[in-house]
Design a protein around this nucleic acid. Structure first.
Lengths: 344, 344
DNA sequence: TAAAATCCCGATAACGTTCACAGTTCTACC
DNA sequence: GGTAGAACTGTGAACGTTATCGGGATTTTA
């Protein structure tokens, strides 16, 4: 096995030698510890700059038994939600000086979670953000058990549970706002196309729809709801099924904007004018939704901010624990807002 | 500073003790080295399973002077392209057993690149994928210089350069296909809304548009082109500007599908029927584009596959170098395809 | 049958940091 | 003027693994 031609990287030892101090003193300067004379500090910093010394993160992690890395467990970034979350996480992490280790779990493989947990632990991550939205509970539980002793976790878009921090958008309330708006506009036969019902957020949005119908004393039967898959194609197919099983339908709450787009397309094909013959409301307020025809009435929420919050909470807990104080991340619930446009 | 209550993790030493062999032998078993008797190997593996031993990635990286981590430098995942790339990268990395360290560079800060490079080097990444699309060249060059001696790099969606591996979709040819289709449909006054012209891909798409006009012997003036920002809002505003400065316009090539959506919206507002009064072609073939009104004719390309390819190339090079052979990643150019729908 | 090669395995030293503790010098106070 | 404490610095041992080298047992070759 041939030696790869690595250029000798500058180590703390060389800095120490050049500055005429001990390795430990350099370490102190680098980490901003007190107890080092101003003059010494200046000399060391000068040498550091001159040699372009960069502390080795790996060695640091090993010695200190903890890293500057946060683990992020996610599913995929093709959907709007996860992409927004990850963007927020990334921004805040960079601002606070954290690095990110990305882990994707494959829903198909049941033991994938163990692999991910083992990876994260073996890399001494300082904290973990669980942004993989699934309801089963078992998965998260097992994961939680494994990670918990090593690093704090925050969960995103999941069922709130005592004993762990869960950050959420109030999907139920958002869906209620959307449906109430349809009711206020005079629609009386309001169906829903849900997201994949294995997801907490999809369930909550359906509950919000039910809440609104109930408080308006409108009936809701199971034939008023069909399950979608977040995609425009799913929304299109969903409207077809919905009309087939519930012909008097006069409005639809689509659980995300992509599905709402599919609904608009199907409605056009069926000769139903929106909003006159069919009211449509979406969820997410993706940037494109204002450009749909007609412009989509939808529910706006701040997922980027949720991601940023997750990092800040984790940061707070990690710092506190480093100072010896026990700390717990707090759960949070952000409130979404209705954005009224033309489709309802 | 209070000791955090870390549960003692199982180390290689304990495995060695339990199995009655040396630490080194356990290491050999874990890493699949030869030169260990079948019987010994079995015994060690049994102990590993029993104690749930997981090698510490940090310590491994430090000792071996190289990790199982790939660095990914990107800009943001809110856009379709980057999200697709990252998804592909993630999938392939997981399949091959690599971990990902995500780094975002802030275009605003000029020295951000140094920070990113330092981080990656300090974590001993085995390879780097540069998926931050910008043309300036300086940035990449400086980065290249710093990383190169430590780890192989592949670049994504950039200007091909000798001496480094660049993976691309043939944006120019794709744009040419799109524009040629407009010509074939009889449009004669074809404008373009480009992406941000600081991006290589945006430049290439504009060149493809020019190619098509030139080979059809149609004139193209600078007033036939406006710069957009990839967003639907940008596409909408773009069409307004385009018509103002080039009134005879009868077709538009929008450099991505979101902008095409904006164009469709603006066209409706102006009372221009698509495709009769105005032909529109997009680029990317996002899943939603088939559901636009009218369904969007666009250019399909396989960005996820490009991301997967990048990881495979890197993997190949890293493995080869570990065996002492010098190796270079190869450059690749994927061909896009035209998808004809209703908008042209 | 001696010499050489092969197969196993272990001892020791890295890898580049931080931590705990032990100085040493200097100031301040009674 | 001795002593207590602060301020600063250095020493040695971790952290958990892999690399290097060497040695004993076993097999192959001359």
């Amino acid at each position: 096995m041939a030696k790869v031609n690595h250029p000798r990287r500058v180590t703390i030892r060389e800095v120490a030698a050049q500055a005429g101090v001990s390795v430990q003193t350099v370490s102190r300067v680098v980490n901003g510890h007190p107890d080092v004379a101003d003059e010494t500090r200046a000399r060391v910093q000068e040498v550091i700059a001159r040699l372009c010394y960069r502390p080795n993160g790996i060695a640091r992690s090993l010695a200190a038994q903890s890293s500057q890395i946060l683990g992020v467990v996610a599913s995929g970034f093709q959907l709007f939600g996860p992409a927004q979350l990850l963007t927020g996480i990334e921004q805040q992490a960079t601002e606070l000086g954290w690095h990110l280790m990305l882990q994707i779990v494959d829903p198909a493989k049941s033991n994938d979670c163990d692999r991910v947990a083992a990876n994260l632990i073996s890399h001494n991550v300082a904290g973990v953000i669980w942004a993989y939205p699934e309801l089963t509970g078992e998965r998260e539980c097992a994961f939680h058990q494994q990670i918990q002793p090593h690093a704090p976790i925050v969960f995103l878009s999941m069922e709130p549970q005592s004993g762990s921090a869960v950050l959420n958008v109030d999907n139920r309330h958002g869906a209620r706002l959307a449906t109430e708006h349809l009711v206020a506009r005079g629609y009386r036969h309001i169906g829903i196309i849900t997201g994949p019902m294995s997801l907490w957020s999809a369930q909550q949005r359906k509950l919000g729809w039910q809440d609104a119908l109930a408080s308006a004393r409108l009936p809701h039967h199971s034939r008023q709801a069909v399950e979608g898959d977040w995609s425009a194609a799913g929304g299109d197919a969903g409207l077809m099924r919905l009309i087939a099983q519930f012909p008097q339908l006069d409005a639809v709450f689509a659980s995300n904007d992509q599905m709402a787009l599919g609904v608009l397309k199907a409605a056009e094909r069926l000769g139903r004018r929106v909003p006159d013959d069919l009211g449509v409301v979406g969820f997410d307020d993706i940037p494109e939704s204002a450009f749909f025809k007609p412009a989509l009435t939808t529910v706006h929420h701040e997922l980027m901010e949720l991601g940023r919050l997750a990092v800040r909470e984790l940061h707070r807990v990690i710092e506190a624990r480093r100072e010896g104080k026990p700390a717990m991340a707090a759960s949070v619930m952000l409130q979404p807002q209705l954005v009224v446009r033309e489709s309802a």
